[in-house]
Computed example of a mutant assay.
Amino acid sequence: MRCVADETNKRTLPTTGWAVLGLLSFGEELSGYDLKKRSDLSLRFFYSSPSFSQIYSELKRLEKAGYATSRRIGHDTGTRDKRVYRITEEGLAAVREWARQAPVDPPVLKHGPMLRLWLGHLLEPAQMREVLLRQRDFAEDMRLRAAADAEATQADPAWAYPAVTLKWAERYYTSERDLAAAMLHDVEALPHHRPSGPDQSMGLPS
């Protein structure tokens, strides 16, 4: 009989699926809205916060795999019922194995401001300065948010490791802020004259 790849095999889950399952691994019964809030509280600082559509898509995949179950619950206040999800024993074992066995891949850096800096010869000095100032301010804002969320999660012992991860995020964005400031200083130290032609600006022979 021909072997057909089973879509529910744990090895077929995308990383976003493991992230959603990981959010359920803390033991609480959560709705899609709750998962999005938890994701914004932690994942967005170091990976990516999935959209609502991604979350619900992964929840369907997890249910099909037997890694999560769901049920509808009502409200005494008359508001609409909602569906909540809980991890299964099989799901907990799967995400534990993934966390233990998944290769530690190096992070992929896709840094928009660095790409703009690389193309700085095509910008006016004031434009390049604005890019770096925005990056510096963005990094500082993320640093403050990560610090606040780290402090907020410290009260819950179950979130000890997310709290430590948020401290890592705080230190990362501190570094990003300082790097942007250093790059701003370096750019401002460059000669104001900028060659008009790409061959000249790149130091290539004409």
Rank of each mutant, 00 (worst) to 15 (best):
L122Y: 08
E176Y: 12
G203Q: 06
L24I: 11
L119V: 02
G203E: 03
L115D: 07
S51C: 02
L35P: 05
P157E: 07
E58G: 02
L59A: 05
A160G: 07
K167W: 08
L117G: 00
L24D: 05
L62G: 05
L41H: 00
P14K: 11
C3P: 15
L190F: 08
K110W: 08
D6T: 06
L59R: 05
S51D: 04
V108A: 15
L115R: 04
T8L: 03
T16G: 06
E140K: 11
L41W: 00
W168N: 00
F46M: 06
S51W: 04
Y67H: 12
A68F: 00
P113F: 03
A155Q: 07
L117M: 09
A169M: 06
L21V: 00
S48H: 05
A102F: 05
R96L: 04
G22S: 15
T153Q: 04
Q154D: 08
E130N: 01
E7R: 13
R145Q: 10
Y67V: 00
P106L: 07
T12W: 08
G120S: 13
E176R: 15
G197N: 12
E89L: 04
G78R: 15
Q154K: 08
W168Y: 13
H193F: 01
R80A: 15
L117S: 06
M183S: 03
K60A: 06
R143Y: 09
R11P: 01
A5V: 06
A148M: 05
Y33F: 10
E90P: 00
T16E: 10
E140N: 14
S31Q: 09
A126L: 07
P162W: 00
L190Y: 04
